[in-house]
Simulated scan of single mutants.
Amino acid sequence: MPQTDVDAVFERVMAARAAAERPIVVGISGYCGAGKSTLARALVARDGGIVRIRGDDFLDPVLSHRRSIDWSGVERERLADEVLRPFRAGRSSEFRPYDWSARRLGEPRPLPSAEVLVVDLIGLFHPDTVELLDLRIWVDLDLETAARRGKARDEALGRRHDRLWDEVWVPNERDFAERFRPRERAHLSVDAR
């Protein structure tokens, strides 16, 4: 992602923070492999007042590997209750990230305290969570290119998930996009080509 795009997004995040009277949540969504985490990490690196919660900490490992029209493997209710609502209210809280190596919810961790929280996650711009996101950023990349990049990333990490990409994740993305129009719910779109 070009540095000029990161600079523009950062300026928009800081403007949203300045306009708010409380901590804000920035939601970054887009297709699998589009570059959501890359953008989130770049924003956190820009300023000590920004913290990140990984969206992968709120995926159900069984449901996220099954077909659904609404990305049912995304634990939006847990995300909202443990992270989004308490953070926006400035309350201390704990959240339980998913421990992928143990295949269960991990030990509770304290919710970080900051001015801005970034959450990057597939299926985030859903009716259950969209109103809890003060600034919604869509990482814009066509689904085919995003899937190709995601497959290459997985392969570089020693994971071969081609069947999941082709039979579950790409169809889930298509269904979610058709049903919920996440790109249209974004306040800002970032070109990830």
Rank of each mutant, 00 (worst) to 15 (best):
R149A: 07
G123A: 09
R136Q: 04
V139P: 03
R67D: 02
D162H: 12
R159T: 04
I69L: 11
R160K: 12
V74F: 04
G73N: 02
R109I: 01
E82A: 11
L111F: 08
V130T: 14
I69Y: 03
D81E: 15
P86V: 06
L132E: 01
L133D: 06
R163N: 01
K151Y: 02
R148L: 14
F125W: 09
V130K: 08
L105F: 14
L164P: 04
L135R: 03
E131F: 01
P61E: 12
S113Y: 00
I137K: 07
L132D: 08
T129H: 01
E115Y: 02
S92D: 13
E115M: 09
T129Q: 06
H65C: 12
D142W: 12
E77C: 00
R149I: 10
R88E: 07
G90A: 05
R96I: 00
L105E: 09
E131G: 09
D128R: 14
R67A: 12
V168N: 06
V119R: 06
R85W: 04
P110M: 10
D128F: 02
L117T: 09
T145N: 08
G106P: 11
D128S: 12
S92L: 05
E131D: 15
R66V: 03
H65R: 13
F87I: 09
L133T: 08
L141G: 08
A156D: 05
R85I: 14
V118D: 00
I69K: 08
L63A: 14
L111V: 11
L105S: 02
L117D: 01
D60L: 00
L84H: 08
L121F: 03
P86I: 13
R153V: 11
F87V: 07
A147R: 11
R163A: 15
S72T: 08
H65A: 14
E131S: 15
I122D: 07
L132F: 06
L124V: 13
A146N: 00
R153S: 11
I69N: 07
V119A: 00
R163F: 12
D142G: 14
P171N: 11
Y98A: 06
V168F: 09
D140V: 14
V116W: 02
H126V: 13
D134M: 02
R163Q: 13
L157T: 00
A156F: 00
I137G: 03
S93E: 07
E82M: 07
D60T: 04
L133S: 00
D166F: 01
V116T: 10
P61I: 10
W71F: 15
S92H: 04
E82R: 03
E167V: 05
L79P: 05
E144I: 09
R148G: 08
Y98I: 05
W169D: 04
S72P: 04
V116K: 00
I69T: 11
